[in-house]
Design a protein around this nucleic acid. Structure first.
Lengths: 108, 108
DNA sequence: TTATATACTATCGTTTACAATACTATTGGA
DNA sequence: TCCAATAGTATTGTAAACGATAGTATATAA
């Protein structure tokens, strides 16, 4: 009954990379982490080249993975604000580890 | 002449994720990092579901990015061995940071 | 002579990611 | 009355990633 799992299957790296991978998620996270809460329209202006459709899709994915949160205000015209969660902010330590690897191994 | 680059453009995260992203690279790296040098055929057997075509392509990409090295022996039938480079091994610290983030934020 | 083993490459098909464009709802103001 | 502003959704098309299959070279062994 108890399946013996290999150490490989327990590694969270594939899931983590899925959560922050793709063409847009890192850029969105960077803005929210470094600049704090942003409205949808502000994000669309700052993420150069992204379409509304894509921005919505990426924001939903980040929200589903608990990296950002979404707050809707009952106003007209509508206002929706996106913020990094604690979990999202905590990714900074991991990005720092990436940065250090880069400095050790790739930097000229 | 000197373009002023924003801190955002200097972040190596997108490149790093490109280097280890996709469906197969992490699995290949895990095997080479934890088990050491492997022949092509051994890798093909261990990376469940991968085709020869894909394995070759992923190995080339990892080699081009300096994460693994390739050694060809002039034998028949051919023998080719793949090993992690120092740079590839050094990714462990980053994977550890991912693991710790996961433990802090996702683990039950 | 024929088969075997190994590490490939070439070609084509499918599936997924991403892009482009148009459309929707709401309400305060000109 | 009609438009602006905001944050979307729906639809369709394209590009990139991935998969399936077949073919290549060559020394050795049967």
């Amino acid at each position: 009954m108890d399946e013996q799992k290999s150490i490989v299957d327990l590694c969270p790296a594939p899931r983590v990379i899925e959560m922050i991978g793709g063409k847009w998620k890192l850029r969105i996270l960077q803005i929210l982490i470094f600049q704090g809460t942003k409205r949808f329209g502000e994000l669309r202006r700052q993420v150069a080249g992204i379409t509304q459709t894509m921005l919505t899709k990426q924001l939903r994915a980040l929200e589903d993975d608990g990296l950002i949160s979404r707050k809707v205000y009952a106003e007209v015209p509508p206002r929706v604000e996106y913020s990094p969660t604690n979990s999202g902010m905590d990714l900074m330590k991991m990005f720092e580890a990436m940065h250090q690897w880069w400095e050790r191994n790739q930097a000229s």
